[in-house]
Design a protein around this nucleic acid. Structure first.
Length: 716
RNA sequence: GGGCGGUUAGCUCAGUUGGUAGAGCGACUGAUUUACACUCAGUAGGCCGCGGGUUCAAGUCCUGCACCGCCCACCA
């Protein structure tokens, strides 16, 4: 071949829009993302399961950051010779998805899910999710993500659905899953329960009412729940109430007339708050519910599922709580029971973060996972889920990075209560429990005629908890499961540490007796240049696809990596992305310069200028060490500066004279060194900037491998 | 109320085990028609949030405080 001219493809400047789609096609054709096809995988397995994006929409910069980070880890390990698997998927995100589709349908057709019926709604949701999946896959590919699409999984596909059923039944049989009447977070808008973790507290200003309750003054923001309050509770050491005794009954005038109230003394009461006396509403407050259980009090609902007052409300029966409050306050005022009103009371209101409404605690029969019950694990030992979750991190079997999140994780575990897993929505994994008269049966298969299945579905995080192994074929004993589990790293945003990371540890502990991953790497949230969350309403969303079109995927990736320390939020602006576009062009032109030199394709390695190559190898070592320590920001920064400031600005500049000189030996030695350094730089850059490095690689006169994607990482 | 993180150049951030303050972007001055104007050389710009302490030496370690942000918690 004729190496003296740079191939025609090296038009200037670098044109990512033309090159990137070609590289994508090249990678896809090769099949190298599937570890079974790797030419040199001699180092054991390296696996990451992609946190599956929700099928509710499109990718945002947070996804892009996740894809960039994981792809760097994956490409690096693949080049180092590990049998590398990066497994893609999608999450059904039950509540969020159903809420979105229901809202869309209502906007367009003014129909609710009850108008459509269960089957029709599920059909509509399926239509939506299929479309959504296709969009997301397309976007994911454009980022250059070297995922093994042949192993793509969806939480609702047959295999994963089966795994969820199996997991439920095993946990049920072990006594870990039980049904009980307990106070849960009820969302009157979506008509379903939600878990403690899905609640978002929103600060809000409401009037705070001080009411006369017999001889006591009690405070409340919610007079409409007070109809059934027959107990007044105070601290036993509170001197103000020393003359009252525990269990003493008093007569008093209340909203709908005279009632008998019972005095309870409990040390849980905060004497310094308000008057130090409070009444309790067991059916609509988690704390009060616990007190009621402690003292064996009756629990009478005041509000129904839709927020309507029940019979106990007397003349207010049938009113919606929103409207009732003012009328009830007026009634109380007429009776002279309102002592005073604080109009500027700030407090937290619980809302459903998955697009729902204001949470109303309700007592309901639901399914729960017991976190404090000691059960037999696969290793034969008895322990609770909580104990397992704590011990695997404490012992170092799972390492969480940055380390500070370990403390947060422990704190969460310590406060953890039984996990309510049943949801009253239709989209999701249906609970595999069947009823026939008084009989109950939990089984994967339909037990036959006469049995009726529980209508509820499972919390979306139940299926997510199985993700590292359900995607690898569990409950079957597959080769994939054996090879790739536990996975090497779980990489995700710190905002789902509890939702997901903790649940995966829980699930794989009980079902497999193993950890789901050895390392947890948490990245920060991507924010706008002012540090605000990106949101539609603020109009500050930077769309990954737009950035790719304007500046290239390589630039988008680098902008999310450099300067992003683990666990720290990333402030992203367009300027940042633009800067890295220039760098991609720099790489392109360095290659052009080196490859244009006539002797480049012919020289022998033995003749090269070793000192310069050693310098590049030292950089390779530094980059490798940084990646091994999950400091991708440092790794990227190191190679960036070596390539631009040292290799391009100094080495190439001083080489110009040598390459034009008369000394043939010096020429070929230098040319060999430049070529060698170029190869090292391309390889070091490849995990960070896969497109431009692959595009250059394709122009090399001689290649050690057909794609840089499977080239060997510099031996360090 | 408890916990965590942040505070370093105009902006965004590095700064590993203490040893003369760094990068990118932006600003300004200039150069070259070049591998690359998506270039190069250079300049300006810092009480390293504030106060105390340890040390020969502190952006870095300890200790108070302030402000910003986040997470958790049943304060009715």
């Amino acid at each position: 071949m004729e190496p003296s001219k740079a191939p025609e493809i090296f038009l200037k400047p670098y044109d990512p829009a033309a090159q990137e789609p070609k590289m994508l096609e090249l990678w896809e054709r090769s099949g190298y993302t599937n570890p079974d096809n790797l030419p040199h995988a001699d180092k054991g397995a390296y696996s990451i399961v992609l946190p599956p994006p929700n099928v509710t929409g499109t990718l945002h910069m947070g996804h892009a950051a996740m894809l960039a980070i994981e792809d760097i880890l994956i490409r690096y390990h693949r080049m180092r010779g590990y049998k590398t698997l990066w497994l893609p998927g999608a999450d059904s995100a039950a509540i969020a998805t159903q809420a979105k589709v229901e809202t869309d349908i209502y906007k367009k057709e003014k129909k609710t899910r009850h108008d459509l019926g269960r089957d029709e709604l599920l059909r509509r949701i399926s239509e939506f999710t299929e479309e959504s999946k296709a969009t997301i896959i397309n976007q994911t590919k454009k980022m250059g993500s070297s995922l093994d699409w042949s192993r793509y999984a969806y939480t609702m596909d047959e295999k994963r659905y089966g795994a969820v059923m199996e997991a439920f039944v095993r946990m049920y049989d072990a006594g870990l899953i039980y049904r009980g009447d307990r106070i849960v977070n009820w969302d009157p808008k979506l008509q379903t329960t939600v878990s403690d973790d899905e609640i978002e507290y929103v600060e809000q200003k409401d009037p705070f009412y001080y009411l006369q309750y017999g001889p006591f003054t009690i405070g409340t923001v919610r007079p409409e729940t007070k109809f059934g309050d027959k107990w007044v509770i105070m601290h036993p050491a509170d001197e103000r109430y020393a003359r009252y005794e525990h269990g003493q009954q008093i007569r008093l005038e209340w909203i709908n007339g005279p009632i008998t109230a019972t005095i309870i003394k409990d040390e849980g009461v905060d004497m310094s708050f308000g008057s130090g006396a409070m009444t309790i509403t067991p059916a609509h407050d988690a704390h009060d519910f616990e007190l009621a259980q402690k003292y064996g009090l009756e629990i009478t609902p005041v509000i129904d599922d839709r927020g309507i007052l029940l019979d106990i409300a007397g003349e207010f029966r049938g009113w919606h709580i929103k409207k009732a409050r003012a009328a009830i306050v007026e009634e109380l005022q007429k009776k002279g029971l309102v002592v005073k009103v604080d109009e500027n009371y700030m407090h937290n209101v619980a809302t459903n973060s998955r697009g729902g409404g204001i949470i109303e605690p309700q007592v309901k029969r639901q399914w729960f996972v017991a976190v404090n019950k000691s059960v037999r694990f696969p290793d034969g030992k008895m322990r609770t889920l909580k104990e397992w979750m704590r011990s695997v991190v404490e012992s170092g079997r799972i390492k969480i990075m940055p380390e500070r999140f370990e403390k947060i994780y422990y704190h969460w575990i310590d406060n953890l209560r039984d996990w309510c897993i049943s949801r009253q929505i239709w989209f999701g994994h249906r609970i595999p429990v069947w009823y026939k008269g008084d009989e109950t049966k939990a089984c994967v298969e339909d037990p036959g005629a006469g049995w009726e299945q529980d209508p509820d579905t499972l919390d979306t995080w139940f299926s997510s908890g199985l993700w590292t192994f359900s995607t690898l074929g569990w409950p079957d004993k597959t080769k994939d499961l054996e090879s790739y589990h536990p996975t090497s790293v779980l990489e995700t945003g710190y905002d789902i540490l509890f939702f997901w990371v903790a649940r995966m540890i829980l699930m794989s502990g009980f079902l497999l007796g193993d950890v789901p991953f050895k390392n947890v790497y948490l990245h920060g949230l991507v924010r706008d240049a002012q540090g605000r969350k990106m949101s539609k309403s603020l109009g500050n969303i930077i769309d990954p696809l737009t950035m790719i079109e304007k500046y290239s995927a390589d630039a988008a990736r680098l902008s999310l990596i450099v300067g992003a320390a683990p666990g720290n939020d990333i402030k992203l602006s367009e300027d940042r992305v633009r800067g890295y576009k220039h760098f991609a062009n720099k790489v392109w032109n360095i290659a052009r310069f080196v490859l244009e030199h006539p002797e480049v394709g012919e020289v022998k390695l033995a003749q090269r200028d070793n000192e310069l190559v050693e310098e590049a190898m030292a950089v390779a070592k530094e980059v490798s060490d940084n990646i091994d320590n999950f400091r991708l920001d440092h790794a990227a920064d190191t190679v960036y500066h070596f390539v631009w400031d040292r290799f391009a600005a100094e080495v190439l500049e001083e080489s110009k004279a040598i390459l034009k000189g008369d000394d043939a030996a010096a020429r070929s030695s230098r040319a060999a060194a430049l070529y060698e350094i170029l190869l090292i730089c391309l390889k070091l850059l490849h995990p960070f900037m896969p497109f431009v490095t692959e595009a250059v690689w394709q122009q090399l006169p001689k290649k050690e491998s057909d794609q840089i994607m499977v080239a060997r990482w510099p031996a360090v």
